[in-house]
Design a protein around this nucleic acid. Structure first.
Lengths: 209, 209
DNA sequence: TGTACATCAGTGAACGCGCGTTCACTGATGTAC
DNA sequence: TGTACATCAGTGAACGCGCGTTCACTGATGTAC
């Protein structure tokens, strides 16, 4: 992405990004043309290529913006202070609800990114974000060893992350018409992923403490 | 798909399907041209359009073949007789190992299908297969209520199915370079999904029986 | 404070490439008599 | 058992459409003096 030198072009750049994200809520990236994007953004093809070297670049730019947003919220949602003194099952429920809600905020972009994951560049950028989450969760599980039974906090954090994000992603992507055919509401999804992760970790029931 | 009337064209059709599946192991469907397929199958463009009304039709035909294969193996792998007398944790471990291995058999096709799931026709065809699995698992859980703690076998079967297939799919699609950045071996994946589903269901430990 | 000039930003018609699809034709297969 | 004919199957050059990208040009912004 060519860095803008004036306010005017900075705004154009943002209009192009926002327009693309709006269109992604309607259809996949390969069925959105540059013409579509500039029409939605009230710009011209030339303005597009003044900012981006290619059509793909706009998806990369959106991914970068998305990952940055994720990093920022992670730092807050997963800081030890946030959950200090809260029992582990409640921590898990809170995080599940948070992720489900977060993924619902950018349904189109999220779908496009899942598809783009075939590309190693996208995969690396997503891995950076995921690693950040997994490391923080691993630290949390390490610190609370007494509250659960999983022997390896690093593996546990990784698998818990996979369970939560896979299910939440699927839910965000296909919603009611899920590939399993049995729709789940947001609330049920949160309840069941919480149950799954609590069970997976072998969180000790309250009376055992 | 136009039904073939001679042996010769039946063989051509299979060559085209097999060639497409082989190419899907290398790159996504939209980067495979009809020219590529007929070259790989030792056929011609006209022969292709003699069997298929469009390029997309070949992916639909592959999906149908794949679903049929799945239905057949399900009927066997999930028949009550197969697991009669086997403790629930071992049943779960067995099924996890089976699914992980099954999804590894058609990596390219599986990836293409995950991407194609945006199309309702593909989704419906996949949902039929998934429903079949979920219904059978629900019946199994219903029959073994005494061995686990989940209150609703239908929801439990659905969520267990999601956990297993989401994780196994992700593993089959990205392998070592997973989006989480922490690679998992096949064996670890089977062990951890088993732990997750056993924990999710609240399977009673052996000494409790 | 005004003017000149360089750079940045934006316009949109035109280009061109890739690829799905068509089609006029040749060859193979099988069936009727 | 052989021949004629209809249908099936296969060939590959050519078409054409969509869409990403370029480019010659106009307009806006800011800075130097």
């Amino acid at each position: 992405v060519r860095p803008p030198a004036q306010d005017r072009s900075q705004r154009t750049l943002e209009r192009l990004l926002d327009a693309t994200e709006r269109l992604l809520d309607q259809r996949p990236f390969d069925r959105i043309s540059v013409q579509d994007i500039v029409a939605e953004a009230d710009a011209s093809v030339g303005a597009f290529y003044g900012r981006f070297p290619s059509k793909d670049a706009v998806l990369h730019a959106l991914h970068e913006r998305y990952v940055a947003e994720g990093q920022a919220t992670n730092a807050q949602a997963l800081s030890p202070a946030t959950w200090d003194g809260v029992p582990l099952p409640d921590v898990i429920r809170g995080l599940c609800a948070f992720v489900v809600a977060f993924l619902r905020q950018h349904p189109g972009l999220r779908r496009a990114l899942v598809l783009a994951l075939a590309d190693p560049v996208f995969r690396a950028r997503s891995a950076a974000l995921a690693s950040d989450v997994v490391d923080r969760v691993a630290a949390l599980l390490e610190a609370r060893r007494a509250e659960h039974a999983h022997p390896d906090p690093a593996v546990a954090a990784d698998v818990a992350h996979r369970i939560l994000f896979s299910l939440a992603d699927q839910h965000a992507l296909y919603g009611a018409e899920s590939p399993t055919g049995h729709p789940l509401s947001d609330d049920t999804l949160v309840a069941e992923t919480t149950r799954a992760i609590v069970g997976y970790l072998g969180v000790h029931p309250p009376e055992a403490r």
